[in-house]
Structures are given as structure tokens and as C-alpha cells.
Amino acid sequence: MIAYIIRRLFYAIPILIGVNLLTFTLFFMVNSPDDMARVHLGVKRVTPEAIELWKADRGYDKPLLYNSKEKGIRSLSNTIFFQHSVSLFVLDFGRADDGRDIGRDIRQRMWPSLAIAVPTFIVGILLNITFAMLLAFFRGTYVDVWGVVLSVAMMSISIMFYIILGQLIMSKLWHLVPISGYDTGLRALKFLILPVLIGIVSGIGAGSRLYRTFYLEEINKDYVRTARAKGLSSLQVLFKHVLRNAMVPILTGVVAIIPLLFMGSLVMESFFGIPGLGSYTIDAINQQDFAIVRAMVFLGSLLYIFGLVLTDISYTLVDPRVRLE
């Protein structure tokens, strides 16, 4: 098992290099540093000197991939790619185009993101599991039919409608919670209620419908018939036998997401004005701050791969048949 995890982590290195190369190509091959400088400094009336200065300031004055002026290892290392990518591997994210320390920003902004994502995630999953269980218990009846119809309808609504409607009703009409904003400490609570609630409600449709199919798949299996032949009640069968088996696909699907909770929700945070990593990313996109976007891409990939490894590990925990070799 440990050997497996170590191997998986080794395997992550070429993937991260690939990610870096890809983003690098997108950022520097399509748009030369000159283009970027011009975008930042204003397209018209920039002197070549200003551009050179801008580039030198940010280390973009070096060759892209291969420095012919240098010798030996330096010909590879004294390049934009090396300087801006290798440091990412030790989680040194460098500075944003406006000079801020990206690493510090991330450490600071991950807490609001987590404050929304974690409760949404946990309560959402518990609710989905429960609703799906209800649908499965009443399978074939009208409860099930209308439950599924409702789920499909709910998942057909864009997240942004949930948010806008939620803000309209909860904040504008009923004045229950503030419409947006954030605060420190416990005072943040009142700002969190609405986004968390909307996050949960918007996920119920898709989640409970998916989990329902997991349950139904299990209910048709032979061991359920055995359990019934043993004289167990429907509820015992559902809770003791079916639930535990259905947890295998549910949990493993869910575990992969856990690390990505760090990244925050782009839409939610920007609608509610929450200073998390999601809105950080959006701001960077809108300000065309490539350094931040690159850092977030790297962080996202890293967390994704971490999620894959976690998924494998969680398999061994919920399914005794799986052993990592």
C-alpha cells in the first residue's frame, strides 16, 4: 500500500511538468512577454524601454525555453520556463504582476473558501444520501417518480438562478441575511448562511438522482435476496446491507473532490463578495494577472492528483476487496 502511494506520487511529477508546459505554452508562446507588457501598460504609446523595464521587473526578459548565451545547466535554468515553473514545485508561487506575494494571498484567502465549501460539502452529501435512500425505499411508487422528476427539474436550473433568487428572496424581500460581503471571526457566520444554503439546494437534484441509481444497482444484487431470505426487514436490508455497498461508489466519488474544496467556488464567491480563492481567481482572470492564474492552475492540478490518491486509499477503506498493489 505504501509502495503504491509512493509510486502514485512519483507518477504525479511528469503530470505536473506536463501541466506546467501546457500553461506555459498558452501564456508565453501565444502571447509573447511583449504582448503581455503591452496589455498591462496600455496598447498605444508605450516605449520599447517601458516594455523592457516591465519585463525585466518580472523576469520575463529571459529566453523562453533555452538560453543560448549560457552554458551547461544554466542554458536550461536561466529561462522563463525554468524560473517560473520549478519554483512552483516547492510551492513557492512567486509574486503577482502587481508585486503581491501570491503564497501569502493563498494562505489568507483559503479560509473563507473553506468556510463555505466545507459545510456545503458535508451537509450536501448527507442530505443527498438521505433523499436518495428515501427514493430507493419508495422505489416504483409515486414518491419515487415525482422525486425523480423534481430532481431532474432542480438539476436543470443554472446555479446562477439559485443564487440570484436566493439573494432576492432571503435578502431583498425578507431581509434575513446580508446580500453579500464578509467579515472576520464569528461575525462571518451571517454572511455564510445564504451561500451555504444555496450551495446545498442547488446540488440536491443531481446528487440524489445519482445516488439513487447507486442504491438501485445494489438492490438488484443477489446478496440482497440472501438478506431477505434470512428474514431481515426491508429497513434492515437497506441500512445494513445496501447502504454499505452503495457507499463504495458514493464515497470514492466524493473523496476526489475533497482536496479541491480549497479552490473555492468561483461563482458563489464572486456573487457573494467573499474574499476566498475563487474570487481571487476571478479577479486575476479579469485583471489578466497571469502569475496568479498560473499559480492557481498548478495548485488545482496538485490537489486533483492528491484527490486521485485519496480516492484510491478510500477504496481500500470502504471495500475490503480492493487492495493496492
Binding site: 501541466v19 501546457l22 481567481t281 482572470i285 492552475v297 486521485l308
Partner: peptide
Amino acid sequence: TTLSSIPSVLLIAA
């Protein structure tokens, strides 16, 4: 794996 490890919104944005 490489492609799907990149957060899709960010790649699209980029």
C-alpha cells in the same frame, strides 16, 4: 490525466 488535472475553468480562462 494531465489535461483533466488542470482546473477546467482556469484553462478555459487562460
